[in-house]
């Protein structure tokens, strides 16, 4: 391997190490970086819905675990604030 490629590889690996250390600091630990890359990034989407577009209708399950309803059933008379989230 020529001296040029050794330096290029060294600089690249150094930058990767710095980036990993920075991400670990920001995320909390190296394990969190792995979790973010492995589990979070594939599910993160910036979102395509824009103000003024029709709100998609989706079927949801009630807390009783048996009754379903449609999100659009809750719209019509007043503005509907929709909060998406989970427990963890």
């Amino acid at each position: 391997m020529s001296r040029f490629w050794k330096w290029t590889l060294g600089i690249f690996l150094g930058l990767m190490l710095i980036a990993f250390a920075g991400l670990s600091f920001m995320a909390g630990s190296p394990k969190d970086v792995y979790g973010m890359v492995r589990y979070a990034l594939p599910h993160m989407h910036r979102g395509k819905l824009r103000v003024g577009e029709d709100a998609p209708d989706v079927r949801l399950l009630a807390l009783d675990g048996s009754n379903h309803f449609h999100l659009r059933e809750r719209t019509g008379s007043r503005p509907l604030v929709v909060i998406f989230g989970s427990y963890t």
Partner: peptide, 22 residues
């Protein structure tokens, strides 16, 4: 379905008006 339609994960907020628009 809701997650995909609204890019909801992990958490997100919307307001839908009386006409069914965002």
């Amino acid at each position: 379905a809701a997650d995909l339609a609204y890019s909801a994960w992990p958490e997100r907020l919307y307001v839908i008006d009386e006409h069914g628009r965002i």
